[in-house]
Design a protein around this nucleic acid. Structure first.
Ligand SMILES: [Mn+2]
Ligand SMILES: [Mn+2]
Ligand SMILES: [Mn+2]
Ligand SMILES: [Mn+2]
Lengths: 148, 148
DNA sequence: ATTAATGTGTAGCATTAGCTACAAAAGTAA
DNA sequence: TTACTTTTGTAGCTAATGCTACACATTAAT
C-alpha cells in the first residue's frame, strides 16, 4: 500500500472530480465563437473575411486563417484561397445554437442587474459552460422576471 | 479603398468585439483550479501529491507535474522532487478567492433549481468567467431567495 | 533485507493558439 | 496600365496542455 492510500482512507471531502478536458473543450469554444461571428458578419455585411474575424477577435489574420482551416477540416465552414468564408449546414446549426445561448445568457445576467457591458463581456465566457439544464433554468427565471 | 471598407460602411450591427485572449485566460483558469484543489487536498488529507491532483483532474501525472512547475515559476506553489506540494501565500490567497467564488456559483445555480450535480459541473467552467459585478449579483440573488 | 507496488521524473510527440516577418494575390485609385 | 493599399498565404517561433514510454525513487509488504 502506497502513500496516498492513507490519504484516501482519511478523506473527508468527497472526491468531487474536476475533469479538465481543456484542450478539447477549448477548441469547441473557439469553434462556437467563430461560427457565431461568421454568421453575424454574413448577416450584417454580406460576407465573412479573415480580416474581419481577426479584427473582431483581436488576433492576427494568421491565427484566424489557421483556425478556419481547422473548422473546415471539422466540416463547419468552407473556404477557398482569397475568397470569403461560408458556413456548412452543420456550421449554421452550431451558429444558431450558439447565438441563441449567447442571447439567453446576456439577457439573464442583465435581468439580475448586471450592467449591460459587463453582462456582454461575462457572457462571452459563461456561454460555453452552460448546460441544457442551466440554460433552461436561466430561461425560466427570465420568464418570471419579465412578467413581474 | 479595399474590400471590407464597404462592409464597414454598411455595417448595421455594432462591432461588439469578442477579444479572445485565450492562452492567457486559460492558464489563469488552470492555476485557479490547481490551487483550489491543492488547498482541498491539504485540508482533507494533509498533503497534496502530484498523483492526487492527476486523479482529481483526470489527466496523467506528467501533465500535472509540468503544470506544477509552471505554477512554481509563477510563485503560486513550492515543491521539491519527490515531496508534496505547498501553496505560497499568494497561492493560498488565490485558492481562497477561487474556492469562495466556486461556492457562490454552485449555490447560485442550485438556487435557480439546477440539479446539484449539474450545478457542480457547470460551476467548474462558469466560475472562471464571473466578474466581480456578476458575482455580487449572484450573491444578492442568493440573499433574496434565502429569505423567501 | 528483498521484493513488489506506487509515485515521480524525463524524453519526446501532437495539437491548439498566439506572434512576427515576409511574399504574393487581389482590389482600388491615379 | 501602373502604382498603391489591403488582404491573404506561408514559414517559423513560442507556450500550454494533452499523451505514451521508460527510468528511477520512494514506500509498503514479505
Ligand atoms: Mn464566447
Ligand atoms: Mn458568443
Ligand atoms: Mn474550474
Ligand atoms: Mn473550482
Amino acid at each position: 500500500m502506497a502513500r496516498s492510500a492513507l490519504a484516501e482512507k482519511s478523506s473527508l471531502a468527497l472526491p468531487h472530480r474536476h475533469p479538465r478536458r481543456t484542450r478539447e473543450e477549448h477548441s469547441h469554444e473557439t469553434a462556437q465563437d467563430y461560427v457565431e461571428i461568421i454568421a453575424e458578419l454574413i448577416a450584417s455585411t454580406g460576407e465573412a473575411r479573415v480580416i474581419d474575424l481577426a479584427r473582431r477577435l483581436g488576433v492576427t489574420h494568421v491565427t484566424v486563417a489557421r483556425t478556419i482551416k481547422r473548422l473546415q477540416r471539422e466540416g463547419l465552414v468552407t473556404s477557398l484561397p482569397y475568397r470569403s468564408i461560408f458556413l456548412t449546414p452543420s456550421g449554421r446549426k452550431l451558429s444558431e445554437e450558439s447565438r441563441s445561448r449567447h442571447t439567453t445568457v446576456v439577457d439573464f445576467l442583465k435581468s439580475l442587474g448586471v450592467p449591460k457591458v459587463v453582462a456582454q463581456s461575462d457572457a462571452e465566457g459563461i456561454e460555453h459552460h452552460v448546460s441544457r439544464e442551466t440554460l433552461q433554468a436561466f430561461e425560466k427565471h427570465l420568464r418570471k422576471t419579465k412578467i413581474a
